[in-house]
Design a protein around this nucleic acid. Structure first.
Lengths: 205, 205
DNA sequence: TCGTGTGAAGACGTTCACAGCT
DNA sequence: AGCTGTGAACGTCTTCACACGA
């Protein structure tokens, strides 16, 4: 067996996916690594190396079949069927994520949302019944949910994560500005708005 | 002169910063690379190497002065004074960002928000007057704004970015699921929610 | 002795150059 | 001829090991 693909490769796979679906919408059925790479903002060799982790998909002299490659990426990324996701924390950001309709067409569905104060969260006119935070572990266990989006303040983040992980959550998209401690079988992707802005700030001269 | 610090180092600097301010709040005035690294979720040597790009800050046998290091990082990251930022696109996500109060205490202030349909955006009861998108370039020029947060649909993203860059924007935090083309002096950090979720999805087995 | 600072080694990811298939 | 697939070279970031100063 070849080596595990690096994390960066997986990120790029998602980008390729998106470019492919745009091509498919335009009824293009074959694409070269050069064209696809350009659309994705990477070098052609990088694209080919990324795909090489998973096998051979192209035809030499021709390129890649848009639909075949797209289907394969769906398969690799696990987006062939709707994946249930729970949202923890329905504040400003959480409420916006609930209303965001982009997830579903990417293969994800927020099936439940939890907040410490469900009543006040419900007031944010979200199209959704918000549940009490205490019910979260039970829900996760009952519905075998594996993914969670975390949009709560830093101070309570770690303890909520512990509960979620105990209940069976395996992957967390974290918007709290905190470094989370999780067991090695759990994966965390953090989106830290302040860090992103500070990073930009550094680079402007 | 030593080499340019890598981008990842700059990201970590922000994390160190946050840990330091927590320490400062707890009246801790000295910290070892081991303790700080642990809080930041990295290895001690990594922290020391990161700092080494900028000089020497510690005292051997003792550690680092929390306040000195924190001030220095403020300086490096350019967060010593409030940096004005504009928001482009006041939809679900944009409105949530407007209401988010975390930016200000990290040294950033959203000074203006723009939308194609300011009236309907105003209806999202944000504590803010939304301006027409057309006014954006003028505002950027007049106020010498360098940073922009982009929260608009993909299809219009590139053309809006072009206008913004022409007007003088140098750094963009992009929430649109698109690969943006910008001149090399402009820096883009993209936060792509679908990509983050797909990435998580890949890793759950 | 304790903890920083740093050259050297190592791991990792990207790019090159070209072989090989259609 | 055209474009993919891939070993090898390269560059970059991380980790190690230890010298050095308080």
């Amino acid at each position: 067996m070849t080596k595990e693909p690096p994390r960066k490769t997986i990120y790029r796979l998602s980008i390729y996916q998106r470019c492919l679906s745009r091509l498919r919408a335009n009824s293009v059925d074959t694409v070269s690594s050069e064209a696809l790479a350009k659309a994705a903002g990477v070098k052609p060799t990088q694209l080919r190396k990324d795909l090489a982790y998973f096998g051979q998909f192209g035809t030499r002299g021709i390129g890649y079949s848009v639909s075949m490659l797209s289907n394969f990426l769906d398969d690799v990324l696990g987006t062939t069927k709707l994946q249930p996701v729970i949202l923890i924390g329905v504040g400003n950001l959480g409420a916006a994520l609930l209303r965001y309709d982009g997830f579903r067409k990417e293969g994800f569905e927020i099936t439940a949302a939890f907040d410490l104060a469900p009543e006040s969260a419900n007031a944010r006119n979200v199209p959704f019944a918000i549940r009490a935070a205490k019910e979260m572990p039970v829900y996760v266990r009952e519905h075998h949910v594996k993914m969670a989006i975390l949009a709560i303040p830093s101070n309570s983040a770690q303890s909520v994560v512990n509960e979620a992980v105990d209940a069976g959550i395996q992957a967390i998209l974290n918007f709290s500005p905190t470094v989370l401690q999780v067991p090695s079988h759990v994966i965390v992707n953090s989106v830290d708005l302040a860090v992103e802005l500070e990073n930009l700030s550094y680079f402007i001269r």
